[in-house]
C-alpha cells in the first residue's frame, strides 16, 4: 500500500501540486502543501511528478 507524504522542509508553497491534483485533495496551508483529507487522495502520483521541490511523494508502506 502506498502512502502520500509531504516534506514541509522542502516545500516552497508554489501550489503546483494542489492545482493539478485531479481530486482536489491538496491545499496550501500556511504556505505549505497539505492534504485536505486523506480519503480523497487516489495515490495517482501526479503531484510527485510535477513537484519542483521533491517535497511530495508516494512511498510503499510496509505492513500498512
Amino acid at each position: 500500500m502506498k502512502r502520500l507524504l509531504i516534506n514541509p522542509r522542502f516545500c516552497k508553497g508554489c501550489g503546483i501540486c494542489a492545482a493539478f491534483c485531479p481530486k482536489s485533495a491538496l491545499e496550501l496551508k500556511d504556505g505549505k502543501a497539505a492534504l485536505k483529507e486523506r480519503c480523497s487522495c487516489i495515490l495517482c502520483g501526479l503531484c510527485e511528478q510535477r513537484c519542483p521541490d521533491y517535497a511530495i511523494f508516494l512511498r510503499d508502506e510496509v505492513g500498512a
Binding site: 516534506n7 516552497k12 503546483i16 521541490d53 521533491y54 517535497a55 511523494f57 508516494l58
Partner: peptide, 24 residues
C-alpha cells in the same frame, strides 16, 4: 524525508535546492 528516486539520484544533503518556488 524524500522519495527513493530522489535518495538514489540526488545529493540530498544539498536539498532543498536553490531554485525559486515553482521553477520548472
Amino acid at each position: 524525508e524524500y522519495s527513493d528516486l530522489i535518495y538514489k539520484y540526488t545529493r540530498v544533503d544539498h536539498l532543498p535546492h536553490i531554485w525559486c518556488a515553482g521553477c520548472g
